[in-house]
Amino acid sequence: MQKALYDQYAPRMLAVCVRYSKNREDAEDILQEAFVKVFNNMDKFRKESTLGYWIKRIVVNTALNYHRKSVYLYPHYDIEDMHHLGDDEVLVSNYNYRDLLNIIHSLPQGCQVIFNLYAIEGYKHKEIAEMLDISEGTSKSQYARAKSLIKEIITETGEVKHG
């Protein structure tokens, strides 16, 4: 049964792990640790959410534990000083997921984590601040920095598409 559960959810969860790490080896380490926790805590699954969502929370939790130290290596940026990136300036849909993955990997670790949590996982800045024990302002500034860097990367590649 454990193997069946692993076969069903491991591919999706590995994609999540890859977004939070810099390379595949680290991603698989995170995935391995996460699934050990999943199997050890199966009795604590109370069916308040779907099993996939529960497993994903454990995977994200494990990924954050794995790379936590990197979040604090960057100074706090005042969000007022950040360059505002208009949403219509970049059309992400023009890129496949591997390109987007490469863009994410090029971000600094702290920005990468917060960008994943806010833009892709859908957490609010207040929730991210509690999860990472940082201020809400830091979360916002790191995210703004991430967006700014993404724009720079896309601009450098010369493939900015305007909708």
Partner: peptide, 12 residues
């Protein structure tokens, strides 16, 4: 971004 990564899978 959410749509781009929604159904992405990678083989371990």
């Amino acid at each position: 971004w959410q749509e781009a990564f929604e159904n992405v899978e990678m083989t371990p």
